Simulated assay, not measured.
Amino acid sequence: MSDGDDHGIRFGRIAAMLPVKDIQRARDFYTSVLGFTTTFQNGDPVGFMILKRDQAELHLTLQPRHRAPPFNVAHMMVGDVDAFYALCERHGLRIIKRLANKDYGLRAFVFEDPDGNRIDVGQPL
């Protein structure tokens, strides 16, 4: 497809898949702290879960030996980045990059979820 002919292909949603060591703990974090809703889960015990809030969607996959990489695994746009940053601070989340206005037109920061997954959060300036 590098020739520019996409044959009329249209892409639908794409969601971040976050590996987690304890899927119930991760669900509790994303639902209780960040306000997501569990819309699907699969397995017995549960090994996969879909969480949604507004237009955001996250997929959690149980990976008991997960070791988080030292880079951002997802980027999330929000309507009030200052309020979201304050929420992260209130809940004692590790902040990797502090809230700042970036030269690429976003006010942004990076935090880690309880499994060490780094998420970049931004709002247009």
Rank of each mutant, 00 (worst) to 15 (best):
E112N: 10
D115Y: 10
V78A: 05
L106R: 09
N42Q: 14
G116I: 02
Q24H: 13
R13S: 10
I9V: 15
G12E: 05
H91M: 05
E89H: 15
G79P: 05
N72I: 13
S32A: 08
E112S: 08
V81A: 10
I96D: 04
A15H: 11
R118V: 05
R118S: 10
P45E: 05
T37M: 05
D3C: 09
G8D: 03
K97F: 09
A26R: 04
D44I: 06
N101P: 08
A108C: 04
V46K: 15
F36D: 00
D28E: 12
T39C: 09
E89L: 14
V110M: 12
L106W: 08
Q55L: 11
A74L: 07
L62P: 03
D3M: 10
D28K: 10
D103M: 13
I119R: 08
V110S: 13
R53L: 05
P19G: 07
L51K: 05
I95M: 08
V20H: 00
A83W: 11
G116R: 01
P64Y: 12
F111I: 05
D113M: 06
I23C: 04
D115W: 14
H66T: 00
V33R: 06
A26F: 02
D80F: 06
Y104L: 02
I96C: 07
R27V: 07
V121G: 00
K52H: 14
M17E: 14
D44S: 15
Q41I: 08
F11M: 15
D80Q: 07
L60S: 00
I119S: 05
N117S: 07
V20K: 01
P64R: 14
D5Y: 12
Y85D: 01
F36M: 07
A56H: 02
R53H: 15
V46D: 06
H66K: 01
D120I: 04
S32K: 15
R65Q: 11
D28N: 04
H59V: 11
G92F: 03
A68F: 03
V46W: 04
G12H: 08
V33G: 00
D120K: 07
M76D: 06
N101H: 13
R13T: 11
T38D: 13
D44V: 01
Q123C: 12
Y85I: 02
F11H: 15
